[in-house]
Nucleic acid binder design. Structure first.
Lengths: 212, 212, 212, 212
DNA sequence: AATGAATGAGTATTCATTCAT
DNA sequence: TATGAATGAATACTCATTCAT
């Protein structure tokens, strides 16, 4: 009831953050707009002052998420110092680690709610489309450096990202923890094959935490 | 109003067929149970006499679809005469051909309705889970025959099926026809890499229609 | 909560009656569908089982109302015994009397709620369109009988009904009771003029209650 | 964002003009206050600085419209030179002509949007109330001049204006163009009857464009 | 085996209006 | 004069499912 005016930027983020949290707890469909505004303590209309629809919020969250993921990925992929082989090791480690850094694992858990499958699928599609060109460039670098042996780097990048993201997604495949771990163990040799490398270059013990 | 009694088997199929047709026209969510029964000309209650829920119908349709696809796949994979290399060529051709045989292309178009993404995702997951062991056996055969060079056949089979099914799905990736065709062209060399084969063994002209 | 099944005819009327009563108390727009079903004691869905929308209910009420009014009107207009002059006297008396018979004055009060102006306007338009041909036939009869002198009976009938219904409608013109009474007094001489009659044939004391 | 200060008179008119234009395009109810201010390029608050409510704007537009119509009407009705018969001919011609002069036909088209029926009805009621006394005076003049034969000139004026305005309104009666034209043809003889004149004095060819 | 009337939970969205600045 | 962020009330409609017959 008391009218609290905020910096529009701030208010927008506030709505985004709250929506994201609730989507994670109850799923997108199950979260009512009224849930969101009640939690923030603003009027229903305020929500619609900032976003045209509930869907637009979901899109904005995904876009934000995508940007968050793209940044470190492109930093590594575009690094001028490293060899392609080193980049791949880093990228794989990044993607495979459960812990994405300081608290981010919570921030994006919302996608793993089983009611968010569609949202999730859309995110993966967008990721593949935006990461693939960067990854293809790394592949090409690797070919020039003599470590990779590969034709059609862009197609392979897309195929790999697609398989990687969907296959290892427990929310999609309903893997148990053990099942997922087994599959993570196999990723190394799949990458080696796809990139035409010597076996063992991406052996699990070189990829998983604890290695250096 | 006229009460028409039918053979239960027949009535069940009638509901399944009608539901499938409508899912294809409007999508699963957008198809109301009332749409289905109205089209058939029976009462709402009749629907629930045969199925516990709308979801059960979707599951039944998917199961039916899965069975339809599994049959030719396992026939090829389990064939005692062919080499693994021959089997792979046939399987790839089967999956890549737009025309899945006698009229079936229509029967399963329903999955390509953009509102059926979730149904579609579920089908792919089930396909991967049931096809992978068969495909892995073919891989192992190929290794024994000296044509394939591969470790962890089951993991590779799963990974490949996942990538293949999701990546080439226009309803999921929103590919244009041209975009999809490009990607189909690249599949051959991806398979060669994954199976550790000589380049060119699965070149597009050996896979696509017209080759023998 | 107890499920009470009724004869569909009966249930339909029940909804219509309740809606009409509420429209009269609060106006069409101000009456929520939930108000209607709560009053009856059925579920929201029951309403929509019988009517596609709230508007359809309003239309049905108006149609019913129109039928109720058309019946006595056409009985008089089509009577084989009376002269046109006698018919006109009876019709004018009917329309001018506040009391439309056995309790009907309540039943159709809903239109006079100021929030029902649009509904009301639609009803008048429909009335004019359906009464005019009957009235024109009476005019023609009067001409044949030598009492009326009139060209273009249909146009005059439409014009007269329109003027009559709108002008004397207190909800539209916001007349006070006194203002309306004055105007009712003048109707007789207007009719005389329109029908080309001798003055005094429809003098107020021949039209209003108390006369015979 | 740039704050543009204008002459208050000007700004007020700007709002009125814009609102009128939008009411004509989408109807009163369908036009949101936000539509109006967006079109002008001012803030929501500015609207409410000039008008207490959306309804007040509608009232102001109608009042303006009424004034525009009243002026020529009263000029003719109050003219000292003409006979009542001449005045009536001019007035009828004015009202029946599709083209109300220099571009005004566009300015008031808004009323003919079918969603403005209520606005329209209100305007007609106000017109009747303000034109009737002027018209009654003309009737009385005609009686004195021996051309009209009429009792109760005010009542007849009100009745005539009401019938005329509602009956010939295509937005209210949903007349087709042809239907409306037929009715316009009949107006002359209705006026003759109401004013107790000789037939033919207001024959269509004396009223419609082309006559002098 | 079939009917069909009845249930009832569930919510995104609009928009006129206010008010602190 | 003007801004624009914030308010908050208000509701028609869908549809999967049930159940008495």
């Amino acid at each position: 009831m008391p009218r609290i005016t905020k910096n529009p930027q701030e208010r927008r983020e506030e709505i985004l953050d709250t929506a994201q949290a609730l989507f994670g707890q109850k799923g997108y469909q199950q979260t009512a707009v009224s849930d969101i505004v009640k939690q923030i303590g603003v009027a229903q209309g305020t929500f619609y002052y900032y976003f045209k629809s509930k869907e637009e919020v979901a899109d904005a969250i995904i876009a934000r998420h995508l940007a968050h993921m793209l940044e470190p990925f492109s930093k590594v992929a575009g690094n001028g110092q490293w060899t392609a082989y080193e980049k791949m090791k880093v990228l794989l480690r990044m993607e495979l680690s459960e812990d994405k850094g300081e608290g981010h694992e919570d921030a994006f858990q919302y996608l793993h709610h089983e009611n968010n499958a569609l949202l999730h699928q859309n995110l993966i599609v967008k990721m593949v489309r935006s990461f693939a060109p960067l990854l293809a460039a790394v592949f090409e670098q690797g070919v020039r450096e003599g470590d990779f042996n590969i034709k059609e780097p862009l197609a392979v990048a897309e195929f790999f990202l697609t398989g990687f993201q969907f296959w290892l997604d427990s929310a999609i495949f309903h893997w148990t923890d053990a099942e997922r771990r087994e599959r993570v163990q196999s990723i190394g040799s799949i990458v080696e094959a796809l990139l035409g490398m010597e076996p063992g270059m991406f052996s699990a013990n070189r990829l998983l935490p604890g290695e250096h």
